[in-house]
Design a protein around this nucleic acid. Structure first.
Lengths: 184, 184
DNA sequence: CTCCATAAGTAGCGAGTCGATACCATCTGC
DNA sequence: GCAGATGGTATCGACTCGCTACTTATGGAG
């Protein structure tokens, strides 16, 4: 049963997930964009970061965001510091939508396999993803708190700090993923 | 680093693989179709089986196959027994193409993670895929040899037999995947 | 033996992906 | 203070993907 090449199974799983996504009313990329926006810290909620995360081209991401904005799931606003960059924010409708993302079947499948298999899958996938990102010289989008630029309690209890962006970070920021993240 | 939900990483890996596929000259589905045709036994090389494997709709698969046929990678022929079904075969050009499928980077990433992670990933992915297919009542597309309809050496040494389709099977058939496969 | 439900495929539509190219603003380094 | 890099958008063409509608073939029930 175990295929010699894990990628065949990964592709197949992703295909099934994509099918679920379609059924739930949006295209797969649109769901991924919504999920990214929900998990990314404020520095990373931009078209550029999303582009890096998805590994797509700027044009495609721009289109996708236009669609999501028209549908009322995402709001754009200008950045004060750099007027080229666009800030993205999930609307309430977008958050509601995310709660109905149609992943129930996959979640129950995940629940039904044992803790051991689930752990193994997560560890293996993490390792492969990390290795591949390293080969590409891409960005890992790891958790802010685990970054080498992260300075815990720099400005008081739970007042952390990003040495790279020179910005204060609260607990929420620290738990989110970030474009700039580099493993400690 | 390890995400609480493995599906996020699986989706991301699949997205990277899809990007590779694009770069290599065909669309992701087209590569998957080619790979399927290379691995499927003769009973399973039909549009219908491919549809079940991909989890897509008949229409989409029909289009994909038309594209591949126009490009000269796949040949269609009529089935004598059931004149509704179309038999699919990879052409030599199709096989050549498969050898240049652009998975090198992913393969080296796979190689660079340890044997342990690779095993873990394969085992976990297999378990999840199996669980999900069970929930959906779908088809596993397992290896012929591991099927409950498979009868080893039924008609002499290495002359196996499929009790479901009532057809003889050679060693090659037995190693391929099959639409009808059900775990022993 | 005929009727008809079912199965295998195809045809065409609409929304959207995706890569590519071209383009416009705005920053930043020298 | 200007050249080049950076962040986004616009548009195009080929294709995916779900959908509905259709055709042809099969096989079971009366």
């Amino acid at each position: 049963m175990t295929d010699p090449n894990p990628m065949a199974m990964i592709d197949r799983l992703a295909r099934i997930a994509a099918h679920d996504a379609h059924t739930a009313g949006l295209k797969p990329v649109q769901w991924e964009a919504l999920r990214f926006l929900a998990r990314a810290n404020r520095f990373s909620r931009t078209p550029g970061a999303l582009t890096a995360y998805l590994g797509a081209t700027k044009g495609t991401v721009s289109q996708t965001l236009m669609t999501l904005e028209r549908a009322g799931y995402v709001e754009k606003s200008a950045d004060d510091a750099d007027r080229r960059t666009v800030r993205l924010e999930l609307t309430d409708a977008g958050k509601d939508m995310l709660a109905r993302d149609g992943t129930e079947r996959m979640q129950s499948a995940l629940k039904s396999i044992g803790e051991a298999d689930r752990e193994a899958l997560a560890a293996g996938a993490a390792a492969l993803l990390k290795a591949r990102i390293e080969i590409d010289g891409g960005r890992a989008f790891g958790i802010c708190r685990e970054c080498r630029h992260f300075e815990r309690d720099a400005q008081g209890p739970r007042q952390h700090f990003c040495r790279l962006l020179k910005e204060p970070l609260n607990e929420g920021d620290a738990a989110n993923i970030c474009v700039e993240q580099e493993a400690a």
